[in-house]
Design a binder for these strands. Sequence first.
DNA 1: TAGGCGCCGTATCATATGTTACGGATTTTA
DNA 2: TAAAATCCGTAACATATGATACGGCGCCTA
Lengths: 275, 275
Amino acid sequence: MASSIAELISERIDTLPASERRAAQTLIANYPLIGLKTVADFSQQAGVSSPTILRFVARLGFHNYPEFQSALQDELAAQLQSPASRTFAPAASGDGIVSPTLEATLDNLRETFRHISDRQLAGIAAKLSDRRGHMYLIGGRFTDPLARYMAAHMAIIRPNVFHLSGQESIWRDRLIDMGKHDVLLIFDIRRYQESLVRFAEKAHHRGVQIVLVTDQWLSPIARFARHVVAGRTAMPSAWDSSASLFVIAETLIDAVTRQLDTEGARRIREMEELR
Amino acid sequence: MASSIAELISERIDTLPASERRAAQTLIANYPLIGLKTVADFSQQAGVSSPTILRFVARLGFHNYPEFQSALQDELAAQLQSPASRTFAPAASGDGIVSPTLEATLDNLRETFRHISDRQLAGIAAKLSDRRGHMYLIGGRFTDPLARYMAAHMAIIRPNVFHLSGQESIWRDRLIDMGKHDVLLIFDIRRYQESLVRFAEKAHHRGVQIVLVTDQWLSPIARFARHVVAGRTAMPSAWDSSASLFVIAETLIDAVTRQLDTEGARRIREMEELR
DNA sequence: TAGGCGCCGTATCATATGTTACGGATTTTA
DNA sequence: TAAAATCCGTAACATATGATACGGCGCCTA
């Protein structure tokens, strides 16, 4: 069916007039990038005139050139999101429970960390390692558990870690204690919660440094954030997956732990003795 | 050297003004396709004005927007030609933060699911889909957030889901309401908490069906559990990782959602309307 | 607190880009 | 062979698109 544009072309390539066929061939040969350039570039590369290009895409069923380009981009986007696995055939067990979910999760993780650099994480870790200020964590409806998870670890290796839980009014009241030396770590994926956005804005105005962990569409909180980390969340399922955010959290925990190193180690030992 | 544009950006992202940084972040998050669209599209997606986008690409060293787009396209072309290079950019990053953590996590996930069968998960999902009984969730010090995460989802697709939080005495009192039709889902990794073990034992004696999600060394609760799922947690780090347990949780959520299917879908719609 | 500086959006402008009309060339059909 | 239809490029056109000037705003410094 609908399938890819490349297939659509190779189906009809025999029925095309000569010049348009040249256009088709050059497109296939440089698929799909030449189609993302201008009509002039495309036509020159194919050795035909611009109107020929336009007639060509019109014959494929597109109403205009930009529409054709959008289709190519969508296709490319889908291709880029799921690296290896999509190129190969579905690994036989297409209808199992485990396989699709696991594969999608692995893809999400790889894709997520492809866009995250060591230096970015190091910058965030440095901020989270600053024991002078307070560290606050909070999350949305589904992501608040991630904030709790991270808080549980951070509280062990550094002082003044607070997870903001309960009613909105409760966090709001804590704003009074927040200042420019403090860090607020927020987890927020769509649908983004207004209450969180409001809270972030107020914290930002108080000078609090915000670290945001969000999805690829970026929560509106990004506007106020000093650091933004985006994870992939799309899944072949009714739900989005927060697994990539979870691994980001664990990576940060690890990074901060290493940064605090000796100090943190002593703290952990002390804590052991207190139990 | 010049290397990729993505790297170029992450190098300089700290020196950028706020709005341009936001542009940079959206570009990285949707790399590189958003950069191939028009300035208007880009700016809208990033929530900034078009001149900001242009100032941004100018600061990266490009003389104009088309030149920037060409660079992206060249990069993309190179990438599309050699699929192998997609795996990762700097392979030499043995000492980075990202690489070792990510690799270990991916290994853990693969190894975890190698030992989990569809039928095992299907059995658990069937139990969790039984809407006649109550479903209780609880976790240990670090894993309780996982219980919360799962509870947040389960509560949407089926009735009578309860996360047990707070003091030990509080859960204990809820035992009075638990019976043989109910399910208790426990997350527990080492070091296993005595309080959880005691609680599990009592629940077991009341005939509650226990589902245990634990690490590869199996919590002592396994003795009382009807179903046991073990995930890999070992990491080259000071901490164990719960990522595999998290993905198990998401897989179960997905499986139960599919099982309840039509019923669940109606419930979700109803819930949407209530908001 | 006042002054200076850099940031960033609004509005305007120039032009690159897609689009269309038209006519000559080529092939097909009668 | 003549007529018709199709193909295809040239050139003019409209507009979407990138670029720029300008002014307000917030932030830092003195």
